[in-house]
Amino acid sequence: MPVPPPAQPVFRFAPSPNGLLHLGHALSAIINHDMASAMGGRFLLRIEDIDRARCRPEFEAAIFEDLAWLGLSWERPVRRQSDHLELYAAALERLRDMGLVYPSFMSRGEIKAAVAAAEASGQAWPRDPDGTPLYPGRERDLSASEQEALIASGRPHAWRLDVAKAAGRLAEAIKWRETGAGPAGEAGLIAADPAAWGDVVLSRTDALSSYHLSVVVDDALQGITHVVRGRDLYHATSIHRLLQRLLDLPEPVYHHHRLILGADGTKLSKSNGDTGIAAFRAAGRSASDLRATVLNAT
């Protein structure tokens, strides 16, 4: 899927319409918009609406309203992931043809029970950078006929990337260029560690593409040169760089910015209405006031 290099820097803000934007989203949108402006680049808005069960049109409309109120402008038309499912399916099929994905059939409950049993026996179960137990990978070595039989039986399944096999195909170590900072202040040329995530989901029966797969396909097709996002996604870059290498996609520069935390010290959530941009506006505060608030927040 070769993509010609863009003539100028291209940035994007890519929210999901599954709730109202909060101050953390405002910070990310403003940083992307301002960096694009400072570099004479383009600023795109992408709607990441793969999860049709949670995404709603009223939240998408609120995204447009909030960003316009902030004084941000973006190129039209806006890209919606739900309009491009066939592209993500094609990327998955390419990985399948390479023998790098396998169907997994364990439910969340079964995974939880397997991990609990292992830990009860004294085994230290590995966890990904977000603290989630790694997938057991029991089906990794099933034969093609066994996989087909289970799928034909109607068993719900996900397609997972065999990360160890995928990384083993690459002749060189995976790295990325970081112009922001990681959790411990990391910047510069960063060594990726996709194995830390285990065999990540790329597609499920109820969601045709995962965030990891769709985001790298979209960034490539939109010619994104600079991925600017919150530090909570810093470690996910390892998986994204692996997928980019496997699919022959261009490598953007990454910039992970600080997060705005709530009073309890955790990152903001869309379910927390009092931290929303709309709530800020309803309280009679101005867009310039919000800009100063998020840019100066610690």
Rank of each mutant, 00 (worst) to 15 (best):
D51V: 02
P57M: 10
T275W: 14
E75G: 15
A173N: 02
L142N: 10
F43T: 03
L67V: 08
R76G: 06
N32S: 04
E172S: 14
K165L: 15
G198R: 06
A61Y: 05
P156M: 11
D218V: 05
D274Q: 15
G24Q: 08
Q244K: 01
I151S: 11
D128V: 10
W176R: 01
A207N: 11
A7L: 11
T205A: 15
S288N: 12
H256D: 05
V253T: 15
E93S: 09
I111H: 09
Y254L: 09
L249M: 10
E139H: 05
M1D: 07
A171W: 00
S209F: 09
N32I: 02
T275S: 09
G41F: 05
G223N: 07
L261R: 12
A187W: 04
A236R: 07
R12D: 03
T275Q: 14
D218N: 07
F64D: 02
L233M: 06
E48D: 15
L161N: 11
Q81I: 08
L20V: 01
L242G: 03
G168W: 09
H255P: 00
R285L: 15
L295Y: 13
G284V: 12
G198A: 09
E75Q: 14
D66Y: 01
D34H: 10
V201K: 06
R80K: 15
A36V: 04
G284M: 14
A278K: 12
H22W: 01
F59S: 06
D49K: 02
G41R: 04
E75K: 05
P77F: 14
D206R: 07
A118W: 12
P15C: 12
A116W: 13
F13R: 06
P103C: 05
H25A: 13
V115L: 10
A90D: 08
A36C: 10
S238K: 04
A187V: 00
I239K: 05
S145W: 10
L208N: 01
A68L: 11
T225N: 02
W69V: 01
H257K: 03
I151E: 10
D34Y: 06
T179K: 07
A26R: 03
H84R: 14
I224A: 06
L268A: 09
A173V: 02
S82R: 07
A38N: 14
R281D: 08
R291S: 04
G182N: 13
A68H: 14
G185V: 04
I224Q: 08
N272P: 00
G276P: 00
F13Y: 13
P136E: 11
R108G: 12
L259H: 03
L92N: 01
D141Q: 06
R245P: 00
L87Q: 14
S104W: 02
A297I: 03
S203N: 12
V3Y: 13
L142K: 01
R94N: 03
R52W: 03
P126L: 10
L249A: 04
D130A: 15
A287E: 09
F13T: 04
R258F: 05
G188F: 07
L161V: 02
P15I: 09
D193A: 13
D289W: 06
